[in-house]
Amino acid sequence: MTIAVATALGATAPAKPAAKTAAPVSKSAAPSKAPAKSPAAAKPAAKTAAPADTTPAPARKPYANVFADGPGRPIADGACLLCHSPMLVTQQAKDSAAWEKTLTQMIGWGSPVTTAQRDTLRRYLLGHYGTHPPTVK
């Protein structure tokens, strides 16, 4: 496999060092000219490799799996959790119109929200899961 990589590098790696460009970041990174010969350098993907686990990292669950406390929480619990977990909601960052669109769709699909509850729920969702800058964790 090392040889295959070396060939690929030899065939495609450019001869012109990137250090000649003006970019500061590239001064410390120039593409290699020569085919790699060090076995340590190459660790290509195996064909059907199913590498043995050593100590696999545990699952990452980046979002809260309970709704935030607040006056709309009982409505959110009752309306949303029949079909999906809170994470699907707690990872969102939506403005009022976007939450309204979601409510219309979910109520249309049978989510048990009464007319009286709807505004409270929208305010609750907007208050806790409004348009703060979303970040992928």
Binding site: A8, A11, A18, A29, A45, A46, K47
Partner: peptide
Amino acid sequence: VSSDGGKSWFPAGFMGD
């Protein structure tokens, strides 16, 4: 692949299957 923010690009090699 670029190491200078996209000013210059250098081809990588394909490998394996």
